[in-house]
């Protein structure tokens, strides 16, 4: 049977409504970009889930490695001064 090469995998991102960012919703197979977009419409927006679709070849995504997660993300952990809660404000100031 399958000597056939499977069609490439695409990641699908959908903007659910105007004003929101595209979110990753899943993936699908398609031979090319046009078909990927068309398939994404049929597969992932059957219930009016979207107003805009992106498809990206899965192979084109460069991801951070889980093994590097300490060096990538831990350095952010000791910089509480980046967050508003780090600062104490006199009570009299109601909003800042």
């Amino acid at each position: 049977m399958s000597e056939e090469t499977p069609a490439p995998l695409w990641e699908v991102f959908i903007r659910s409504k105007r004003g929101l960012a595209h979110n990753h919703v899943g993936s699908l197979h398609a031979p090319d970009a046009e078909m990927a977009l068309r398939n994404a419409r049929d597969v992932y927006t059957r219930r009016m889930e979207g107003v805009s679709i992106w498809v990206v070849p899965s192979a084109m995504i460069t991801a951070s490695s889980p093994d590097e997660k300490d060096s990538f993300f831990d350095p952010a952990a000791d910089k509480p001064y980046r967050h508003p809660t780090f600062y104490s404000i006199p009570k009299e100031v109601q909003q800042l």
Binding site: L28, H29, D42, V43, R46
Partner: peptide, 11 residues
């Protein structure tokens, strides 16, 4: 021929 097309034809 594929699941994707099955869904499209039904749409």
């Amino acid at each position: 021929p594929t699941l994707e097309d099955d869904i499209a034809l039904t749409n």
